[in-house]
Amino acid sequence: MMYSMFHFGYSKWSVIPSDERELWLRQFAQEFNWHSDLTETVRKKFNEKAMDSYTKQMNA
């Protein structure tokens, strides 16, 4: 997913446009379910994990 969903190569997660980061969240949401009240909490945690994962991939 990391390589196929981005329009460009980005040096770090924080410079990825929010609409592209949102695509990742939507892909994630297709696999998992949660109560709608938790969406902002899930979004925050998802971004934390995605940032960590992206950084590790770029460093590798």
Rank of each mutant, 00 (worst) to 15 (best):
E31M: 10
S53L: 15
V42K: 07
A60T: 10
S18R: 09
D37M: 11
Y54R: 02
V15H: 07
A60Y: 04
F8R: 14
M51Q: 10
E31A: 05
R21I: 13
N59I: 13
S11T: 03
N59M: 15
W13L: 03
F28S: 02
K49E: 15
D52Q: 13
A60I: 13
D37C: 09
E22V: 03
K49H: 04
M2S: 08
D19I: 05
Q27Y: 00
L23V: 06
W13Y: 01
R26S: 12
V42I: 15
E40Q: 04
M51V: 02
W13S: 03
L38E: 15
S36F: 04
P17T: 02
G9I: 06
F6A: 07
M58V: 12
S14L: 08
I16S: 03
E22Q: 14
Y10W: 01
T55N: 14
H7L: 13
K12Q: 13
K56T: 07
F6K: 08
H35R: 14
P17I: 01
N59L: 15
V42T: 05
P17R: 03
V15E: 15
N33P: 07
K56V: 11
F28P: 02
Y3I: 08
T41A: 10
F6S: 05
M5E: 14
W13K: 04
I16T: 02
Y54Q: 05
F8I: 06
K44M: 12
R21H: 00
T55R: 14
M5P: 01
M58Y: 00
G9D: 14
E48G: 02
M51N: 10
E31L: 11
D19P: 07
E20W: 00
M58K: 09
E22S: 12
T55M: 14
H7M: 12
L25S: 11
W34H: 05
Y10V: 01
A29P: 02
H7F: 00
M2R: 04
F46C: 04
M2Q: 07
M51E: 15
A60D: 15
E20V: 00
W24K: 09
W24S: 08
T39K: 11
D37F: 02
S4C: 06
E31F: 00
E31N: 09
S14P: 03
R26K: 14
R26F: 00
R21V: 12
S18H: 03
F6M: 13
T41L: 12
W34K: 05
D37R: 13
K56F: 00
F8P: 01
K44A: 08
S11F: 01
A50H: 02
Q30L: 11
Y54S: 03
V15W: 04
M51A: 06
W24V: 09
K12T: 03
Q27P: 04
K49M: 12
S4R: 05
M2T: 12
F28D: 03
E48T: 04
F28L: 03
S11I: 01
